[in-house]
Design a binder for these strands. Sequence first.
DNA 1: AATAAATATTTAGCAGGCTAAGTAAATACT
DNA 2: AGTATTTACTTAGCCTGCTAAATATTTATT
Lengths: 138, 138
Amino acid sequence: MVDNEIREHIDKISSQMRRQYSEALRELDLHVGQDNLLCKLWTADDITQMQLTELLNCEPSTVTNMVKTLEKKGFVYRKKDPVDGRVSRVYLTEKGLAVREPITQIWRKQQDKLLKGLTAENRELLNKFLQQMEKNLR
Amino acid sequence: MVDNEIREHIDKISSQMRRQYSEALRELDLHVGQDNLLCKLWTADDITQMQLTELLNCEPSTVTNMVKTLEKKGFVYRKKDPVDGRVSRVYLTEKGLAVREPITQIWRKQQDKLLKGLTAENRELLNKFLQQMEKNLR
DNA sequence: AATAAATATTTAGCAGGCTAAGTAAATACT
DNA sequence: AGTATTTACTTAGCCTGCTAAATATTTATT
């Protein structure tokens, strides 16, 4: 049965990737997961926490905590929305902007390592499979 | 560039899977990750914590914590090794044995959902790619 | 035999990520 | 207008998972 293995493989690959690039992130004073949040802000600054929970596919409380620690570390800052008093908008600081390049490089390096030995066609194929699986989980 | 997407896809798929079957695990009074530890004990009971860190590919302190909470919940128990006073051996209780079937079913269900729409050949192919990637990360 | 080094586990402390329950502001309803 | 509901976020508490430092036991060295 190949099927059971696939779930396991993905689990292992994912956790192993996390482990490996967490070391690199630590040098930027970042923790695994925080890179993803910052990434969302690169592509769309001035975003509400609610939007972040959707983009990151996680719970509101998780965003609260993550933003709070990222704020404490100086990567982002928050401002209350002037119109709607409930919502809190998140912005990148210069420090948060500055880690964009290094993080992108860390990711690229990790990807290269991951895909070594796979031809362009196979990568294309793999990508299609992954897209399908991602859709299946929605 | 397909390459960057692949890393992201795997990340998303993995976390989405976690989210989804964590609900099912909760009904067994289990937390995501604990299923993996129990799984190792099904295939090889009477195992040291050091062996668990290798099998789970995690840090010793993580095993300590996980075993401790699983012990508190009655899924496993520990005994000191009579020969080597440093090592601690972990065993399944009946409760820990009893969740084997339900957990396997949860996994199977998750896999089915994940792989829906992929032919047998494609699953085979995907599995090969994943094996390669797993090897690449070692 | 006495000291040094290695091994197995633990503890403390941090962060992501979750649930459940709470607060505050905005919208809907009567 | 006044109450009820919804929405955005927060807090408390738990667990995985990590690092760094501590403890205890075993093995290696001299």
